[in-house]
């Protein structure tokens, strides 16, 4: 039984452009966010998300529903993210250890928050600082650990789905996620103690 998104994709394959529009509407926010969490820059994330859908568009004639549509879509997004990181590493235009979110974007968000202010400016500054630290911690992860943890935490995907997206075994996903969390634990240590968290085990 095909998932409804694969059915839409098949309709698109036979020439129904509206089906493609529906898929774009449904997944644009998810894809932009996955890429944003990975790259850290809103504008770049949106450009890459457009590229993801452009690839879907171009592949329509060759499309065969071998897996869930979302698995295929996330696979395209993950590959683009990994390529982007490789490109950046090659040309060394951006250092991975430096903060990636644009300064202007951060300031704008801060101003908006102060304007709406229910929390105090002190709280806002602390949150900004915390977000920057989390961003840096995510950026410091090796690319494959980073994409695995983003797909797991932000998209709530199962290890099996992640393994299909990243073309690796479930065991390998388990190892990557364990290592990613261990790495993050060291970098985020100051924030982990005070976090409101109800355990759950």
């Amino acid at each position: 039984m095909l998932d409804p998104d694969s059915q839409l994709m098949l309709k698109f394959k036979s020439g129904d452009t509206i089906s493609f529009e529906k898929l774009v509407k449904k997944y644009k926010e998810k894809i932009v966010n996955v890429i944003y969490q990975f790259i850290g820059d809103k504008e770049e994330a949106e450009d890459l998300a457009i590229e993801v859908f452009l690839r879907v568009y171009r592949a329509r004639k060759r499309y065969k529903p071998r897996a869930k549509f979302t698995t295929w879509l996330y696979k395209i997004a993950a590959n683009l993210c990994l390529n982007e990181i490789r490109k950046k590493a090659r040309f060394q235009t951006v250092s991975l250890s430096e903060s990636i979110p644009s300064e202007a974007e951060e300031k704008l968000m801060l101003i908006e928050k102060i304007a709406n202010s229910s929390p105090s400016p002190q709280d806002i500054l602390e949150e900004k600082e915390r977000n920057t630290l989390i961003r840096k911690a995510i950026d410091s992860l090796p690319a494959k650990q980073r994409i695995a943890i983003i797909l797991q935490i932000y998209e709530g995907l199962s290890y099996k789905e992640i393994s299909k997206i990243l073309n690796c075994s479930v065991k390998s996903v388990e190892r990557r996620l364990y290592r990613a969390r261990t790495n993050l634990k060291e970098k985020l240590a100051p924030y982990l103690k005070g976090e409101k968290y109800n355990g759950g085990f």
Binding site: E21, V32, I153, E195
Partner: peptide, 28 residues
């Protein structure tokens, strides 16, 4: 250790999500 690992997920999940711009589809 389990408590710390759980807090990491909680901390990361709490990050703000962004909205695509209004021109996303037109640009596509």
């Amino acid at each position: 250790e389990a408590d710390l690992l759980g807090r990491i997920s909680y901390l990361l999940k709490d990050r703000p999500r962004i909205k695509p711009t209004l021109s996303f589809e037109a640009d596509l």
